[in-house]
Simulated scan of single mutants.
Amino acid sequence: MSVLRSLLSHDMPRSRWLAALLLVAVFGLALTPFLFPGIKALNVAAKILVFIVLVASYDLLLGYTGIVSFAHTMFFGIGAYGIAIASSRMEPGWTAVAVGLGASLLLSLGLSLLIGLFSLRVKAIFFAMITLAVASAFLGLASQLSDLTGGEDGLNFQVPELLRPSTEFLEEPWLGASIDGRFASYYLLFFSALGLLLLMLRIVNSPFGRVLQAIRENDFRAEAIGYRSVVYRTLSNVLAALFACCAGAMLALWLRYNGPDTSLSMELMLDVLLITVIGGMGTLYGAVLGSVLFMLAQNYLQELMKLGAGLVEGVPVLAQLIAPERWLLWLGLLFVLAVYHFPSGIVGRLRAAALQHRSGGH
């Protein structure tokens, strides 16, 4: 138990239901290749892992520091393009991956530092507008520099041989899972996501993380006791950008492709914002539960509606409402209800319920 506490930086779930849901999510993702061997299930699980890192990195900004930024997916795109450009221009292999990741981390560091230093002195709404303008400019640049980025078509590239789907480690499936390059890629993503999430937990539960939360709660009081809020906000912006860049690299390695719509679109930014709010701001566990819920709903709601439509076939209004092509309407409705009933997010609601139960018990 003490090892687990240390791994989680003493930030325990504090709710039995939350602990149970997190265990189901972690073990479900860890065993996906064996439990759900289909290609679609593996793709969904891989995207969940990428989104866990991306959403958790955004929560460093929004939930822990109180910064609203619309340029977060720009750093996600930089990470993905770093891998794509290096792998398509160099000999495909681990050297290209290392060069691409290193270059994209350096670019993310420089850009996030510039944005932080020049923009975080202005009021919150103006900072949000500045980041939106920067993100839009970067998206336009990525679409137009076709010689470098592949333009609107994006870039297809080869990954190291170990991660290629054609690489087979065992001729026969083992425990129902094909042990091939895709299997290796999935577990590279799983352990990367796990390591990055534990590192972020360590950061937010360190003295530095406590200062970020103090700035979020009361900027003037934090300044009064000697903390330079601009410095801490800038550092938070830089850290969030670097983690988002790693998430982008993970996505590129999994898809073996990257384009503007894949990693830089505004829809992606809105998804990240929505998952952060649904999971619970200011708690990295919310990134895990929110990403799992969002990705499962986005990928399987339409199939559930097909089953429902078959059951109510012939019923005039109901058959139209449950038609599979209206899945986006129901997805939107589900998330509106989730935000309405869980204003502090899923994690916040579960922790509040556990605290209330303990108080009632005494």
Rank of each mutant, 00 (worst) to 15 (best):
D219K: 00
S57W: 07
R14P: 02
D271Q: 14
S229H: 10
A124S: 15
E313A: 13
S119K: 08
L239P: 08
T276I: 00
V231W: 09
M250A: 03
L117I: 14
A133D: 10
A247T: 00
Y227W: 11
T131N: 04
A98W: 11
S112P: 12
Y186W: 06
Y64V: 11
A30V: 08
L170W: 14
C246R: 05
L145Q: 15
S88A: 14
L251N: 05
G348V: 05
C246H: 06
L284S: 07
V68C: 01
G290S: 06
K40D: 06
A184C: 03
F34E: 00
D261R: 04
L199V: 14
A297Y: 01
I85V: 14
P324K: 03
M269V: 10
S166R: 03
Y340W: 13
S236M: 00
L155M: 12
V50M: 02
A25R: 00
A193Q: 12
T234R: 04
A184N: 09
V204A: 10
L114P: 06
T65Q: 11
L199G: 14
Y300M: 10
R14V: 01
C245R: 02
V288S: 08
F183W: 10
V312T: 09
G150E: 11
I179C: 06
A287D: 09
K47V: 07
R349W: 08
H10T: 05
I346K: 06
A30N: 03
I83T: 13
L107W: 07
T167E: 10
F191D: 08
A25H: 04
L61Y: 01
G226F: 02
I203S: 02
I203Y: 01
A177Y: 01
A124E: 14
V99H: 03
D11Y: 13
L273M: 12
G282T: 00
Q356A: 14
Y186P: 08
L35K: 03
G28T: 00
L242H: 03
I215S: 00
F138D: 01
V53M: 08
S88Q: 09
G79E: 09
D59R: 03
F76N: 08
A80C: 09
I48S: 02
F157S: 07
L23Y: 12
A19W: 05
V339R: 11
F169C: 07
T131Q: 13
D271C: 10
G110E: 08
V272Q: 07
I215M: 12
F36A: 12
V44K: 09
L307T: 05
A142V: 15
I225A: 04
L148E: 10
L337A: 15
P324M: 05
R210K: 14
Q320S: 11
M74N: 02
M12Y: 02
A84V: 11
F208P: 06
Y257E: 04
I322E: 01
L199C: 13
F34Q: 03
A98L: 15
V315N: 06
A287F: 09
P160L: 05
L109I: 08
G79F: 09
S146C: 00
R256S: 13
Y232N: 02
Y232E: 01
L109N: 10
G280L: 06
Y232K: 01
R233G: 10
V292I: 05
S143G: 04
T95N: 10
I125V: 15
